[in-house]
Write a protein that binds this DNA or RNA. Structure first.
Length: 210
DNA sequence: TAAAAGATCCCCT
DNA sequence: GGGGATCTTTTAT
């Protein structure tokens, strides 16, 4: 742990690789907010710009996906079905539109803030569901439209990633991505099997290693 | 006008 | 722990 109690903040160079290469390296890293919320990344999906029919960037730049085409180390936030926000870590080079969707965290710190951000009227209040799923993750961490395009490496960042010495799994769970109708053949979903959080279940017919 | 990188919620066993 | 209805923005046709 670093002096701020949340490991060392990742720098720009960490994000320069391709999304398929970066995604498994994000596992077990910490997602940290400036108000003390910390979660360990346990599930991600890689999206690959113009080469990936499931990517928002497949048909080129638009108002929404602008951040995906920008520099690495920034965040791309979009609204899914008018209901929930989803957060992606932009990587690769400018113009490539590579990004990794953050799908689940294991809560580490600031759980009271996460709970108050999420449980307004829900009947079922289970800490295992606090950051499980891209929508719940964003709600718990306070990520909304105002975070779209923000720099995760800037000195005044409200949100960043950190490493605390816990390495990514040597053999992560791997499967096809969730909720897409094209590009289903690509095994670009990566997971840590965290007993503290509901077990992620790869879809039938998917490739599973480890 | 229709589809979307559905997930989340409630209700049920 | 599992299944189905529902939420309502954004983009593409």
């Amino acid at each position: 742990m670093g002096p701020d109690g949340a490991g060392r903040r990742l720098k720009r160079d960490f994000y320069r690789g391709d999304s398929v290469e970066l995604a498994p390296r994000l596992l077990n890293k910490l997602l940290v907010t400036s108000d003390g919320r910390i979660g360990r990344i346990i599930e991600v999906e890689a999206y690959r710009g113009e080469e990936d029919p499931a990517s928002h960037a497949y048909r080129g730049p638009s108002v929404r996906n602008q951040a995906m085409f920008g520099p690495p180390g920034h965040l791309y936030v979009y609204m899914s079905y008018g209901v929930h926000w989803c957060a992606n870590v932009v990587c690769g080079r400018v113009g490539q539109a590579r990004a990794v969707l953050l799908r689940a965290l294991s809560p580490v710190a600031g759980l009271d803030l996460m709970r108050s951000a999420r449980w307004v009227a829900q009947r079922r209040q289970d800490d295992r569901d606090l950051c499980r799923g891209p929508g719940r993750l964003c709600q718990a961490m306070g990520i909304d439209r105002s975070y779209d395009g923000c720099d995760l490496t800037g000195p005044d960042a409200r949100l960043w990633l950190a490493a605390d010495g816990v390495e990514p799994p040597a053999l992560p769970l791997v499967s096809t991505r969730v909720g897409i109708s094209v590009g289903m053949d690509r095994p670009w979903r990566f997971m840590v099997d965290d007993p503290g959080v509901s077990r992620p279940v790869p879809r039938p017919g998917s490739v599973v290693a480890g």
